[in-house]
């Protein structure tokens, strides 16, 4: 469903181009759980941003379901952005002024989901992550792991086809990290496509495919077999 052809991303400096991504070709099918691995500065986050339509300043071709992104109008792209992708961040990025309930509600508001339906979606999510009692708390009142759970709930509330996670466990203890990865695995089993960027090898074991990035280039692409 996602196809990248010869993606280049570079910064133009006075005398030379500094490439962040160079000649990336990638096809990701529905239902895959892909891990992007690599050291800092390898271009993992940049690739995620491009995949998530947050960055359109690159060369090359990006097709979703066979449709080229760069020929789409702003409005179409924005609609696609809303329907296809959910985001999870290393620093959770919850809105401090909003309660747990309202944070999860926000993407639904922007998707113009009617009030009654919003409430039932959020109720299900809170239930699923055992956070019903915390729905009126503000992010600052939660532990890191709990905040990331809210982040995940918020990301999947709009029922996106693809979840993009940038170092989702980077700020968490290992126990919390494990819990989050188990949630990802569960979501994957239910049919979600997940692309995560990480530099923890252990996280890759939860996925089905491992792609290594070094200096903006794909150096290996292998599938992971589960016992």
């Amino acid at each position: 469903m996602i196809e990248l052809k010869e993606i280049d991303k570079f910064i133009e400096s006075r005398f030379q181009r500094i490439f962040i991504l160079k000649g990336v070709n990638l096809t990701i099918n529905e239902g895959e759980f892909v891990t992007l691995m690599g050291p800092s500065g390898a271009g993992k986050s940049t690739l995620l941003n491009i995949l998530g339509l947050l960055d359109d300043d690159y060369k090359g071709e990006y097709l979703i379901d066979g449709r080229p992104i760069h020929r789409m109008k702003e409005r179409e792209r924005s609609a696609l952005h809303k329907s296809e992708f959910g985001y999870i961040f290393q620093a959770y990025h919850l809105i401090d002024e909003l309660t747990v309930f309202e944070n999860i509600e926000t993407p639904l508001l922007y998707r113009k989901v009617p009030s009654a339906e919003r409430k039932s979606i959020i109720a299900n999510l809170l239930d699923r992550f055992n956070m019903v009692a915390k729905k009126d708390l503000f992010p600052a009142q939660l532990s890191g792991g709990q905040q990331q759970l809210v982040g995940i709930a918020r990301a999947i509330a709009g029922k996106p086809k693809v979840l993009l996670a940038d170092e989702p466990t980077g700020n968490l203890h290992s126990a919390q990290a494990q819990e989050i990865m188990e949630v990802f695995q569960e979501l994957h089993k239910e049919g979600a496509t997940i692309i995560q960027a990480t530099h923890a090898r252990s996280n890759a074991d939860y996925g089905t495919r491992l792609i290594n990035l070094v200096d903006g280039k794909v150096t290996s692409d292998e599938s992971i077999q589960h016992a």
Partner: peptide, 16 residues
């Protein structure tokens, strides 16, 4: 900044 950026990532249109 952060709030605005987030809301955009979550699908907010500029008009909203």
């Amino acid at each position: 900044n952060k709030e605005v950026g987030l809301r955009k990532v979550l699908g907010a249109m500029r008009a909203q």
